[in-house]
Design a protein around this nucleic acid. Structure first.
Lengths: 98, 98
DNA sequence: TCCTATTTGTCTATATTTAACAAATCATTT
DNA sequence: AAATGATTTGTTAAATATAGACAAATAGGA
């Protein structure tokens, strides 16, 4: 799962930008951007802000995808992933109350 | 949130074991075990197996708590935590199908 | 084939994390 | 209150993981 990278790639291609163009705007290596789009590396938080602006995306939505990718990476190979998600969600809701 | 550590501490106290005793069984520093129980440090996976045996706990249940703690740590300070959890869960279910 | 875009592989710098050790604090008993 | 034992805290070293740079390989057209 790599919803974040896939969205960036889609948007970039829509705008007919090359990796080279976008990576220049982010001030990172083209190879690194390629890896971010394919989910091989994780984008820094500061890039999220920039990317939201460049592609006129809602920051919160983009950030949610990014965060979901992090969660997914943590649990993807675990049998008990769903159970753990359930517990974490429960605890999260508890903590909101407090 | 530190469900894992709290459970271990409860069980240890039920058995009237000292940190010193349990840390010896796990072959780790007493201070480290103290930190694990209080959620300041994360237990290695191999300790989960050992702890399940020592306290006669169901491994899967104990592991789920441990994994939930990891998820929680990743998202605890995020406004969009719940949204991200939802996305991750959706993707996880998708991936099971495939 | 040549040219351009992208991907891959390797290596380095940096950040994070585990874990050890020593010292401080806390709790209990005498 | 001093002494003893248990736990916690702080600091530091070592191990691990990650971002990112660079060079080379690959893919895809004209």
């Amino acid at each position: 799962m790599n919803r974040f990278g896939e969205l960036i790639r889609t948007k970039r291609e829509e705008k007919e930008m090359l990796l080279r163009h976008l990576s220049a705007e982010l001030d990172i290596d083209t190879a690194l951007l390629s890896k971010i789009e394919r989910g091989e590396k994780t984008a820094k938080r500061e890039y999220i802000t920039l990317l939201a602006k460049i592609f006129e995306l809602d920051y919160n939505q983009l950030f949610s995808l990014w965060l979901a990718d992090q969660i997914y990476k943590l649990i993807e190979n675990e049998d008990l992933a769903l159970e753990a998600l359930k517990i974490a969600k429960k605890e999260l809701k508890q903590s909101v109350i407090k």
